[in-house]
């Protein structure tokens, strides 16, 4: 056997393992269908193969082989486009849409996961060449866990506190505490909302959180996740049940209204806490001098 074949096989194996590890099928239910798995695992295999051959190629002074990595980057950028396109098309038939920010976040994650696969393969083949194959295996597994840890972003629970708010009407205005949600005209809808609806108040922990939660994409992501997790009674042609979030312009706290399938407040609060913070929504005014000064 060629001196590198074992090492390359090791790199491919750890790369594929990394891709499978990252292909979790959670409540976001994406990708939830077998064909989605096949697509991503196949691309994962390609990424793993590319990552594994890079170091042996360099050692053999086959420098042109390394330029294939550049090609790979282009290839994987297409994954982002593919995900974005698919999810955007499905968006029209989503009761509570994800919003473009959430889609962009998901698409970016899928692209990044392939780069991580390349990294895992590179590390494991590299260490296998330097030391031996066992250390290569160990380094590969270690990198998988490290990348999993590093790729885990923040959640709403890290930046905000969610409390129950009082859902009530001031004449025709639906309010959660002192925040106006919307104007409702039908008496029957009002009765149903009062008996079955849930109102929450989301208090941002600091000014960074306030700026982040101010983003409409982030708010839509929260609404989408909550409606997926606890269910929403929203029906096409019945906009009174649309889950909504509105901001108290003076304090920056947010009011959330939803008509869930089950009136279980604790579950709705947990669902809000579990929503990921979107990369595109993150803003950090407190990192700047002006922001800090304005905050006090």
């Amino acid at each position: 056997m060629d001196k590198y074949s074992q090492i390359i096989l090791l790199g491919i194996a750890t790369g594929i393992a990394a891709r499978i590890f990252m292909l979790r099928n959670d409540y976001r239910s994406y990708p939830s269908y077998p064909h989605g798995y096949v697509t991503h695992i196949s691309l994962g295999i390609i990424a793993a193969a590319l990552g594994s051959i890079a170091i042996p190629a360099l050692l053999e002074k086959e420098f042109t082989a390394v330029t294939f990595l550049v090609l790979a980057a282009q290839q994987f950028r297409d994954i982002r486009n593919m995900e974005r396109e698919t999810l955007s098309k499905l968006e029209n038939y989503n009761m509570v849409p994800r919003g473009f920010d959430y889609i962009e976040g998901i698409a970016k994650t899928f692209e990044a996961r392939n780069y991580l696969v390349i990294l895992v393969s590179l590390v494991s083949t590299g260490t296998a060449v330097l030391f031996n194959i066992w250390i290569g295996i160990f380094a590969g597994i270690f990198t998988i866990f490290i990348s999993g840890f590093l790729m885990r972003g923040d959640f709403v629970k890290d930046i905000a506190i969610v409390k129950i708010g009082k859902l009530h009407f001031e004449k025709s205005l639906l309010m959660v505490d002192n925040i106006v949600i919307m104007n409702i005209g039908l008496e029957d809808s009002k009765k149903k909302i009062l008996s079955e609806g849930i109102g929450l108040i989301i208090h941002p922990k600091n000014d960074n959180a306030r700026a982040t939660l101010n983003n409409l994409g982030q708010r839509q992501a929260i609404l989408h996740d909550v409606s997926v997790l606890v269910g929403s009674k929203l029906e096409t042609g019945e906009p009174d049940w649309t889950p909504l979030m509105r901001k108290d312009i003076d304090t920056g706290k947010l009011a959330l209204y939803i008509l869930p399938n089950e009136k279980d407040v604790e579950c709705v609060i947990q669902a809000v806490y579990q929503t990921p913070i979107l990369e595109s929504a993150v803003q950090k005014p407190l990192e700047s001098k002006i922001g800090r000064k304005a905050a006090d």
């Binding site: 042609g237 019945e238 906009p239 009174d240």
Partner: peptide, 23 residues
């Protein structure tokens, strides 16, 4: 109220109350 409900369902739209008897 009834007419507003019917119209909202037919038009897939929302009923708003202007609080002066006009919907």
């Amino acid at each position: 109220q009834h007419l507003a409900l019917l119209l909202s369902r037919i038009l897939k739209a929302m009923v708003h109350d202007l609080e002066n008897g006009v919907y």
